[in-house]
Simulated scan of single mutants.
Amino acid sequence: MSVLAFTRRRSANRPGRAGTDVIVHPVVHSIDGRTAPFRSIELAGTVIGTARCARDFERLCRAGGISDVTATELRVHWRGGGPGHWG
């Protein structure tokens, strides 16, 4: 599934965590060039990890207790670029 479809597709039949905000921070580039660009993922005010792609984003949300990242109750705030911007 594409990143755009991944974040735009909504389903009321799949409950997520009600009223949950996920903040996807701007892309961070390595100064020394040794690490790939990434975005920090924040859930309920706590950074839960870094993502380099939509698959990482989905994995982190699941680890944070969100079973369905397409649930209507989930609010994803993309900062510094939308869901198609990973580096």
Results as ranks from 00 to 15, higher is better:
residue 1 M to L: 13
residue 1 M to N: 06
residue 1 M to I: 10
residue 2 S to G: 09
residue 3 V to F: 08
residue 6 F to H: 13
residue 7 T to M: 03
residue 8 R to F: 03
residue 9 R to P: 05
residue 9 R to N: 14
residue 10 R to I: 09
residue 11 S to V: 10
residue 14 R to Y: 07
residue 16 G to N: 06
residue 16 G to M: 10
residue 16 G to T: 13
residue 17 R to C: 08
residue 18 A to G: 04
residue 18 A to N: 13
residue 19 G to C: 11
residue 20 T to V: 13
residue 20 T to A: 14
residue 20 T to L: 15
residue 22 V to L: 07
residue 24 V to T: 01
residue 25 H to I: 01
residue 25 H to P: 06
residue 27 V to P: 03
residue 27 V to T: 15
residue 30 S to H: 12
residue 31 I to T: 10
residue 32 D to C: 02
residue 33 G to R: 08
residue 33 G to A: 06
residue 35 T to R: 11
residue 35 T to C: 10
residue 36 A to W: 05
residue 36 A to L: 10
residue 37 P to R: 10
residue 37 P to Q: 12
residue 38 F to D: 06
residue 38 F to I: 06
residue 39 R to W: 07
residue 40 S to A: 13
residue 40 S to F: 03
residue 41 I to N: 00
residue 42 E to L: 03
residue 42 E to N: 07
residue 43 L to W: 12
residue 43 L to N: 04
residue 43 L to A: 03
residue 43 L to H: 12
residue 43 L to V: 15
residue 44 A to G: 04
residue 44 A to S: 10
residue 45 G to D: 14
residue 45 G to L: 13
residue 46 T to V: 15
residue 46 T to H: 05
residue 47 V to F: 06
residue 47 V to A: 07
residue 47 V to Y: 09
residue 48 I to L: 07
residue 48 I to R: 03
residue 48 I to A: 05
residue 48 I to M: 07
residue 49 G to E: 06
residue 49 G to P: 02
residue 50 T to W: 01
residue 51 A to N: 01
residue 51 A to Q: 00
residue 51 A to Y: 00
residue 54 A to K: 00
residue 54 A to T: 00
residue 54 A to F: 04
residue 54 A to G: 15
residue 57 F to E: 00
residue 57 F to V: 00
residue 57 F to M: 02
residue 59 R to T: 08
residue 59 R to W: 04
residue 59 R to E: 08
residue 60 L to E: 00
residue 61 C to M: 15
residue 62 R to V: 15
residue 62 R to K: 15
residue 63 A to P: 02
residue 64 G to D: 08
residue 64 G to W: 02
residue 65 G to Y: 12
residue 65 G to H: 10
residue 66 I to R: 05
residue 66 I to W: 01
residue 66 I to E: 09
residue 67 S to Q: 08
residue 67 S to C: 05
residue 67 S to E: 12
residue 68 D to S: 09
residue 68 D to R: 07
residue 70 T to A: 15
residue 70 T to I: 03
residue 70 T to V: 11
residue 70 T to M: 08
residue 71 A to H: 09
residue 73 E to V: 09
residue 73 E to Q: 14
residue 75 R to T: 09
residue 76 V to T: 12
residue 76 V to E: 02
residue 77 H to N: 13
residue 78 W to D: 01
residue 78 W to N: 02
residue 78 W to H: 09
residue 79 R to S: 06
residue 79 R to T: 13
residue 79 R to Q: 12
residue 80 G to R: 06
residue 80 G to L: 09
residue 80 G to D: 10
residue 82 G to D: 11
residue 83 P to L: 00
residue 84 G to E: 14
residue 85 H to Y: 13
residue 86 W to F: 11
residue 86 W to D: 02
residue 87 G to N: 11
